[in-house]
């Protein structure tokens, strides 16, 4: 149970928000982006990204949108909201300040 809660509290939501900063994407695309960067966090259970996405959607940090693919089918995609961007920047600012101090 604690592990499940950590999925929403720790760095995972920030990680997903960071993935969405480069553009909207479905759950599969986000995992692909993550793997391209060398991170295999969701390798064991890729579907675990959806609870995180729904959690972020519930918090108003991401928004669901529908995107039409080449084969004509619609895909549920996630996009950063203004609140999500602000949250992302808020987490980044202290890190930058620390870097400057160093």
């Amino acid at each position: 149970m604690k592990q499940n809660n950590n999925l929403f509290r720790g760095c995972v939501p920030r990680l997903v928000l960071g993935l969405l900063k480069s553009g909207e994407g479905s759950g599969f695309e986000l995992i692909s982006r993550l793997e391209n960067r060398g991170c295999v966090f969701f390798r064991q259970q890729e579907a675990a990204i959806y609870p995180v996405l729904h959690f972020l959607e519930h918090k108003g940090l991401v928004r669901v949108c529908l995107r039409r693919r080449e084969d004509g089918r619609f895909r549920r995609c996630y996009r950063l909201t203004a609140k999500g961007k602000a949250r992302l920047n808020k987490h980044k600012e202290p890190q930058r300040q620390e870097d400057v101090k160093k």
Partner: peptide
């Protein structure tokens, strides 16, 4: 995953 969604 269903357990996780219930938490959300």
């Amino acid at each position: 995953v269903a357990k996780l969604l219930k938490l959300v």
